[in-house]
Design a protein around this nucleic acid. Structure first.
Lengths: 242, 242
DNA sequence: CGCAAACGAGAACACCGTTCTTGACAATCT
DNA sequence: AGATTGTCAAGAACGGTGTTCTCGTTTGCG
């Protein structure tokens, strides 16, 4: 995509290196105290800078730094989910059931969220500034839902649909409501499967948000076992059954 | 419960009245600019107070004020959901299907969230301080999940379960994972139905959060039609079908 | 009436993000 | 090589924030 020329002046190399260093320190403080506590002054202090104004050479402001962290978080999460999918896909000779793929991706996303709770809150919690998602982020943000989509729309076997199985009906207004999405998909993609993948995507992050934000703490004793079961039951309920 | 004595001195009356006034102003500013922009100084200014320190006579700090708003939000949301349920229950002579109850409650919760987006973000977004939920809030916070629970566990007809219907299996670890919840329920409550209500609860707020936080804006054209369809499909998939 | 508690005002402290100016340094062009 | 251009960290300053403490004043109670 980029970097058509290799020669980088020492200034440029130092600049991108220092930019990464700023992000690393900021990510550390974010992971430690949350987004609300991320302070440009504290970042500058930890970097040995005598003044926070020096950071404005690299980021236009605090929100820009947070946006950069958001993009990195989406990238990291997307990579984790895709890696889990690839691992399940390539390991066994026997093709793995679609349900197992789904459950595996679910656990990968949950594991990532548990490992990076504040970064998860940054991208799937309440949007802090004015919830303006730059165009750069959507490419990374769509990696997980896209992965789930292929899980639901790509038939696991030759067709993946048993002859006697009842496909859920989709009223016209519901089908039209996701026209913007269907327009970008192969024309023969069944709308009910797209709907199923969107619902699976919705549920996955609803469940993780509930667990991470404490809405379940008084209710479930073993979060991982509960999550595994809910992922399985939702997957089968949405038509992934083997 | 409380107020065993009626006589209130003028001081006390003025105090509770002014406390309510503070909350009203704070709620207005919250609805206008979000929780991050809620400032004690701005609240004091709007109340005509010359200094924000006066507010500390009524709330120990900014977080306490936010906690009070959280409790009010839970109360308001719970009342809205229960009112919608009651309206559906009492209107028709014919007993309404459980699925319709479920969809009605879903729309009530969504309507409330759309009308009070910042209050919704306050209670179902990322917890701001250290996500410590005071004991007062849980009574209000559990109203909606409890309502959904009765929807799924109370049989709509005489039993509500068709003879040939296959009940989803629950492995032991999954059943044990929600032991804390089952301990507080009638001993014959079927665990798979409790599981279904928890999943419905999870999905409901996952869907609303996605819509409100902009994760669907580029994907679905008619959010209400989409929401209605997903609520119906999830309800039937979880065993509410008529 | 007198006393103690509650009240609002005010100043102060320690932070914060952001802006602007200043002097030093490196890269580039002539 | 020398002059110039642009980048850099520094520093000071502004307006904003939550919070704490100390004041007189007012209110309610014994």
């Amino acid at each position: 995509m980029s970097s058509p020329q290799k020669p980088l002046t020492a200034r440029e190399r130092a600049r991108i290196e220092f930019t990464a260093e700023i992000k690393a320190v900021a990510r550390r403080q974010l992971a430690e105290s949350g987004a609300a506590a991320l302070s440009l002054r504290a970042v500058a202090r930890e970097l040995g800078l005598a003044t926070p104004s020096a950071l404005y050479r690299y980021f236009p402001g605090r929100d820009a730094l947070l946006t950069a962290l958001i993009l990195d978080a989406y990238t990291s999460l997307g990579a984790a989910a895709e890696a889990a999918y690839a691992a399940l896909d390539g390991a066994d000779e026997e093709p793995v059931e679609a349900l197992e793929h789904w459950v595996g991706v679910c656990h990968a996303v949950r594991d990532w969220a548990l490992a990076h709770p504040h970064e998860y809150a940054l991208i799937y919690g309440s949007p802090v500034p004015g919830y303006a998602a730059p165009q750069d982020t959507v490419a990374q943000a769509t990696r997980v839902p896209y992965l789930i989509g292929t899980l639901f729309t790509d038939p696991p076997g030759q067709d993946g649909h048993r002859p006697g199985e009842t496909r859920p009906a989709m009223p016209d207004d519901a089908r039209q409501s996701l026209a913007p999405l269907l327009a970008g998909l192969p024309p023969d993609t069944p709308a009910d499967r797209v709907m199923g993948s969107l619902m699976a995507w919705t549920y996955l992050f609803g469940a993780i948000s509930f667990e991470l934000f404490g809405h379940r703490s008084a209710i479930v004793a073993d979060p991982r076992a509960f999550f595994d079961h809910e992922a399985r039951r939702l997957g089968t309920a949405l038509g992934l059954a083997g």
